[in-house]
Amino acid sequence: MSQERRDLVSITNADRLGFAIVAPILLGWYAWCRARGRIESGASLVRSLLAALKGPSHGALTGIVHVDGHCVRANSPHFLVSDEHATSALEVLEDGRVLGPAHADHGEIASLGGGRFSHWDDCVWFSSSDGSDPRTNGRVYTWRERW
């Protein structure tokens, strides 16, 4: 990569100045547009900011109930950013192993299982890796945010 090419992607003080000038302008414009309904978004700025300030967290999946087919549902803390608010950074672990794919369709979680999961509406909708019932298979299910 030539010096000229590097300069195009490296951040200079002039770029930082540009960001410092433009970012407040756009935030102000965003607030104005939101107040007038010109920008509609399911993304929650407050929740995203709080999550960012809190930092990545983790915990156990509790209150697991059966939903349909392979799909079970557990509660997740209300301060997490789910796919309902923006894009969830949640990982679901089964005995410490990461399940997936994430952001799965709830119908596919029920019909296909295989570790698919979704983070939506302060709940985690998930399935075990082998089709067994997470409530009775004796494994430990946890979650963590991965940024």
């Binding site: 200079t12 540009g18 960001f19 993304a43 950013v81 923006a86 991965r146």
Partner: peptide, 30 residues
């Protein structure tokens, strides 16, 4: 010139932190 600097900083940060809550929020609205 300012807006290009803004784009450079923003895109670089979001590419480095694609799963950060603020990245997800920004990507949805901007």
């Amino acid at each position: 010139r300012w807006f290009h600097g803004f784009c450079k900083v923003l895109v670089t940060w979001m590419r480095r932190h694609p799963r950060h809550p603020m990245s997800a929020w920004i990507q949805q609205i901007f």
